[in-house]
Design a protein around this nucleic acid. Structure first.
Lengths: 250, 250
DNA sequence: CGCTAGCTTGACACAGGTCAAAGGCTGTGG
DNA sequence: CCACAGCCTTTGACCTGTGTCAAGCTAGCG
């Protein structure tokens, strides 16, 4: 987090966006410029694109976060896990109340795209306007995210703890690979078992047991916040995993 | 489904859209025009806005449907239940494979908005363009739907069968009220217990038992595909239900 | 060097799943 | 108009995946 050069930090955003759709030179430049105005947040802090009116791309440059909701009695459900390169919580309609809040899971660095130079707010079409020059990417990103939400619903509704856990690991593997954070099927995963539990709809204890089962079955290896997938074929089979399609129909 | 006048059929769409944001006279007219070109589908039929390239608003005028996914071994998970007035399956990115398919649960009548008269495809902004004149509504609708997906995730991940079932009934009550299909807290719900099970992530048998428990607790009444909510306050309390906010931040 | 947050383990409880069979309904065709 | 077929609902007996409780354990951090 500390002494990394701005270029290294914005790299993840570049990779993430490029995977969705190639960036124009101008866009690439603006992504690089992200490195200028950084925001930091400590674990547990709420990240909210403060009712900014309209959506304004804000990216996680480093660290992990999540979108979650709390029930009245304290139960927590995590909707999605956010990794570097991901855009942070904005729905075109910034619903005031607790629809979902975005929370840092580790120390996090954020950067927000600045609006384009004034006068360009041309065309009539009111709201959806692309004052930031990333409308296409944001739309594709929203699609990708919807797909992830659907995957999550399947996990929670129809898969066993064992399948769920493995499925999540495959998802993270895929997403982290996209931003170049996987080596030899091994990646860092700075999540406590409590977070995993609240994401997977399980109890902490059972997450623990399930991870151990996966380990005993020689499917994964876990060591101090690092995970290695030992048998992708088998994992894919067990979990019925299908990586998101990035085919931009446009 | 048969002898109803076009106006009566498009009424639900009108109500649904108006709830999101008032319709301009022109828009209202185009909604009425929906009644002209109807499509019918039998229970079990796949409804897909056949890779239409871009999104093109298609509405359910009558009947119920759902978005679902099948696992390799036959397990099914339903993501959302679609009622009259709802827009049907289109993601800006029409992912080819089984991300999710839309299926009719009853006999269904559909209508698709026709593109605006040719030459209007003006402005430069490529994709997001509103050839159909409902961009704002579609965007708000997408937000509403995302909220419903999040609710669903909470249900599946953190609520008991009892809570889940009751929560779903409150959601349906709210959505049906929006299109004027609730009277005295009573509404038609043409869903088999199997569908409920696949939506709620439960077994058929347990859905049955849960409904009976709710009945025994004098919270609901069920009779041949009609449901009555007897104690909304209690139901809301139990399920931690919060109706979606329609506050259009725009 | 002690504290605290996170991990691990065991014993036990219970929500919800599975299996199996019996009752309704409803529509269809003889 | 009846009888059959199929689908849906209901019920009971039993099983199991996951949760709960409680206690140690480990390791990083101040």
């Amino acid at each position: 987090m500390s002494a990394t050069s701005p270029a290294a930090m914005t790299g993840v955003v570049f990779k993430r966006l490029t995977a969705l759709k190639p960036l124009s030179p101008g866009q690439a430049q603006r992504v690089e410029a992200l490195g200028e105005r950084l925001d930091a947040a400590a674990p547990g802090a709420m990240l909210q694109s403060e009712g900014d009116g309209l959506m304004r791309p804000t990216f996680i440059l480093s660290g992990w976060a999540c979108r979650q909701r709390l029930l009245a009695d304290g139960r927590r459900q995590i909707f999605s896990i956010l990794i570097p390169g991901d855009a942070v919580g904005f729905c075109s309609d910034p619903s005031p109340i607790s629809s979902a809040s975005t929370v840092a899971l580790t120390k996090v660095t954020l950067a927000t795209v600045e609006p384009l130079a004034g006068g360009l707010t041309s065309s009539a079409q009111s709201s959806a306007q692309d004052q930031w020059g990333f409308a296409d990417h944001m739309r594709l990103s929203a699609c990708l995210e919807e797909g992830l939400l659907l995957d999550h619903i399947v996990r929670l509704g129809r898969q066993t703890a064992y399948e769920r856990t493995a499925h999540l690991l495959l998802e993270l593997h895929w997403r982290l690979a996209l931003i170049g954070r996987v080596e030899e099927r091994r990646f860092a995963m700075p999540l406590t078992q409590e977070v995993l539990a609240d994401f997977l709809g399980l109890s902490i204890v059972h997450v623990n047991r399930t991870l151990q089962q996966l380990r005993r079955d020689r499917l994964i290896e876990v060591s101090s916040s690092h995970v290695a997938l030992l048998d992708m074929a088998q994992l894919t089979l067990i979990t019925d995993y299908q990586p998101p399609s990035l085919a931009s129909g446009t």
